[in-house]
């Protein structure tokens, strides 16, 4: 069986598909070289959906820094890959905050206590999420069509490689899309390894939505779990300073699926920075972390 890496990107407009894929590939190769491994990367595909919401991609030729098509965060190799520091106090503080936030915003059945607050937060900060989370298709048919189109980009890639061993890497909002697709839209497709990085899956409004979809689909008690489509591993990588992946420990919320696959959380150090400014959420930084490279090499070497 052939092996394939399928990636799905996150929020905001992106460079053209081929360039983004190339930069992702370079990041992975950089991580592999750092570990001194000589594995050959299998075929890599990208579920690209930025064009559905933004039309025109960011342009590498755009020099005007104020232009909406200017690329301010392109791929740059890391100066140094360092071992992740433990940040024990920060870790405990985040887990404590998570408990408080869940207590304030989530009821026991995972429904939201104050639905207007996250709605306003999403509206003000994440227009893509607002389109994707729209559930009222009668009043906003356009948003629903766009959401279906985004999902179908990933589904068609997964269908194309359904006879191969798939390593699915989802970054940021891509992890919400991937989770939806694997759990509710194409649960029959088999994924060998599911990787989420910088994933906001633990945010109350995301958890609440997953629980609601789960309930309507199964018509039974709510259970947050690894999608049944994942057959061997689900790894979740988060940088403790990543402001999107505030809940770095998804294993607290998501149980194992019927095959016993449970999410394994790992704290990593995302070393991405551009012009001296770090971005602990950037996909290129996650893709070269030694921890991610470790699990990718395991997948490539698996017989």
């Amino acid at each position: 069986m052939a092996k394939v890496i399928i990636a799905i990107h996150g929020l905001r407009n992106k460079p053209p598909k081929n360039l983004l894929l190339e930069w992702g590939r370079k990041s992975i190769l950089e991580g592999i070289a750092y570990l001194g491994s000589e594995v050959k990367l299998p075929k890599m595909e990208l579920a690209y959906w930025a064009d559905i919401l933004h039309g025109q991609p960011l342009s590498p030729d755009e020099k005007d820094t104020k232009s909406p098509y200017f690329i301010d965060e392109y791929y740059v190799p890391s100066r140094k890959i360092k071992k992740v520091e433990s940040h024990i106090i920060r870790q405990r503080l985040l887990l404590f905050l998570k408990k408080i936030i869940y207590r304030i915003f989530l009821k026991k059945d995972f429904s939201l206590r104050f639905p207007k607050i996250p709605k306003k937060f999403i509206h003000n900060n994440f227009s893509e999420l607002e389109v994707y989370f729209n559930e009222n298709c009668e009043t906003n048919e356009k948003a629903c069509k766009r959401r279906d189109e985004i999902n179908s980009r990933l589904i068609s890639l997964l269908e194309k490689y359904k006879n191969d061993e798939i390593f699915l890497v989802a970054h940021s909002m891509g992890s919400i899309i991937a989770f939806d697709v694997l759990s509710f839209l194409a649960p029959d497709i088999r994924i060998n390894t599911f990787v989420t990085m910088g994933a906001p899956l633990g945010a109350p409004f995301v958890l609440s939505r997953i629980a609601r979809l789960n309930k309507s689909k199964l018509q039974e008690h709510i259970k947050l779990q690894t999608p049944e489509a994942v057959s061997k591993h689900w790894y979740n990588f988060a940088d403790i300073k990543d402001s999107i992946a505030i809940d770095y420990k998804l294993s607290d919320e998501f149980k194992a699926n019927k095959k016993g696959v449970k999410v394994q959380d790992f704290l990593v150090l995302n070393t991405y920075q551009i012009n001296g400014k770090p971005n602990h959420h950037k996909s290129f930084g996650y893709l070269r972390t030694p921890e991610f490279i470790n699990v990718l090499i395991d997948f490539i070497n698996e017989k």
């Binding site: 001194g36 921890e291 470790n294």
Partner: peptide, 11 residues
């Protein structure tokens, strides 16, 4: 450290 390097493991 030598064994970590031998197995190239960061996890």
């Amino acid at each position: 450290i030598d064994d970590f390097v031998k197995y190239r493991t960061w996890i």
